[in-house]
Amino acid sequence: MKYPCLFTLVFIWFNLNGHAEEISQVYPGKLLNKDLISTESDPVIDLKFKGTENGFLAFKFRHLDRVTIKEIPIFEKLVLVRIKGANNEPGEQRLVPDEFIHGDIIVREEIIDNGPVASEDFMYLGVTTRTDLKGILLDDREKILSLFEDLQHQSSTLQFANKRLGIQELTLTRAQIYQELGIFYESRINSREENLSIGGVLDQATYAPGDTAKLSVSARNEGDEGVVYRVLARSVSRWEWLDGKMFYLGDINAGEKKLFSRFFPIPDDTAEGDYYLRIGGNEYSGAKPQHRMIFKIRK
């Protein structure tokens, strides 16, 4: 019995004097959770120019919620344990069970897509147009397009007003229109004027004053493979109501035909007769293909 008691004493002495531990550092470990403190909702309307649909400039409206979220992160509690006095040792990392460290408050913003702004009336440039079920608004009365008939006009800030949703603003530039329509004048292409034909078709043979005529202008590339035509066209006429409407045909590859339609409201006081106009083309290489047309107005 003498020896076991001695062994216990030696063990106690050794632990008290030679191998005592100390905690030198506390720090966060793995992120365990986040405690939500608050969320702030900020519903907004997202408005983007989407190029053309059915030959009209198209704008997409979506409901978005810009949510501001405040959270506190919760981490594991880790300690670093060393043998007392052994400061040069790396020590041992230990998880402290049932204890946690709370981090600083985190503020972040989250955009939540709440779907299209469907079937809503928006008023812009004196007209009211309704979005479809996909939230697409078509400039079907060509009010926006008409702003850019003046070739000097480079950008417009548009306001779309809805009684419930307020006013949405969008700055539209000529460059954006060209880009969406595939007209990149800053990059060179292999382009020639041969084998480019321009045509135009009216939706009726004759019109009455007050009617709206739809004119579809087409351009066909009958050239060889690899030849690309880059075409803008414009109506040219003595009559103001027929003059100056742009047809954004863009890049036309070999064998391809492109179509762009515009509407021509015929003034109520237009006299009977034949009204002449030209579709004047402007191709990247400088070619100006022409197509002659007549509007027949009968009462």
């Binding site: 070739l151 414009r234 003595r238 030209r278 100006k288 022409q290």
Partner: peptide
């Protein structure tokens, strides 16, 4: 002037 310029650009002669 702007009408004249656009006619020149798109080939209209009156």
């Amino acid at each position: 002037l702007s009408r004249r310029e656009s006619w020149e650009m798109f080939g209209g002669v009156f």
